[in-house]
Amino acid sequence: MPSGFCETVYKDLQTSDQFKPLPMQDTSNKSMYSYAIVNRGENPAVLRLEVGPNGSDYAIDMEGVVEKGVTEIVVPSKFMRYSRLTLKSKQKGQPTKLQVYFQAQLAR
């Protein structure tokens, strides 16, 4: 019997001064999903959770800051077929190291 859980982990991500998207997630067959962002670096990072209908056009669902040493959990408030997380350094020239988890329950 297949598991009702799926996970993708992005390790050792380095932020930059520009928003960089993680790979999109097709959430059309997920009943619930969320992202955990762990800031393992020394500087804060800005995150945007984006949702979109077609894998190329996105709208910002929420934006926030992950302080150093903190884990933030983000859950979209709107449903679209695709979601992605974009990340950047909060302060110019002050990158940080992040680890991101995408976890989902599969629709049955």
Rank of each mutant, 00 (worst) to 15 (best):
L85V: 15
A104K: 00
S56D: 09
F5K: 04
G55F: 05
I37H: 05
M80W: 09
D57F: 06
L13I: 15
K78V: 12
V9G: 01
I37R: 03
P76D: 08
L13W: 04
E72M: 15
T27W: 01
V65A: 07
D26L: 04
S28V: 03
T71G: 07
A107T: 07
P76I: 00
V46F: 03
T86A: 13
M62R: 11
P53K: 05
Q25K: 12
S89W: 03
F5G: 00
G69D: 09
G64C: 12
D12Y: 14
L87Y: 10
S83K: 03
K90F: 08
I73A: 06
A36N: 11
M1D: 11
C6G: 13
A45M: 05
M62D: 14
E7W: 01
Q99T: 15
V74D: 03
L47Q: 07
V66P: 04
K88R: 15
Y10E: 02
V74Q: 02
Q91Y: 09
Q103V: 14
G55C: 06
F5I: 08
D26R: 02
A45R: 05
T71S: 08
Y10P: 04
Q14E: 15
V9H: 07
E50H: 06
R81D: 00
K90V: 08
K90S: 06
N43Q: 09
R40K: 15
D17S: 10
S56V: 15
G4Q: 09
V66Y: 00
Y33C: 09
L13F: 11
K90G: 01
S56K: 10
D26A: 06
Y33L: 07
A45G: 08
V9D: 03
T96Y: 00
M24H: 09
A45F: 03
P23I: 03
F5H: 09
K20E: 14
M32G: 07
Q91C: 09
F19V: 01
L13G: 02
S3K: 08
K90R: 15
D17E: 09
V75N: 10
A59C: 06
D12K: 12
Y101H: 11
K92Y: 10
S56H: 13
Q18K: 13
L13D: 02
K92L: 12
C6T: 13
R108F: 07
E72W: 05
S77D: 12
K11A: 10
S89F: 00
G41K: 02
Q18I: 08
T86G: 00
I37N: 04
E7H: 08
F5Q: 04
N43S: 13
Q94W: 05
T8V: 14
R84L: 14
M62C: 15
K90N: 12
E67G: 10
T27V: 14
D12V: 07
V65H: 02
R84V: 01
G64S: 13
E67C: 08
G55Q: 10
S28I: 00
G69M: 06
V9E: 06
S89Y: 00
M1N: 11
E50D: 14
F102H: 13
K97S: 12
L98I: 06
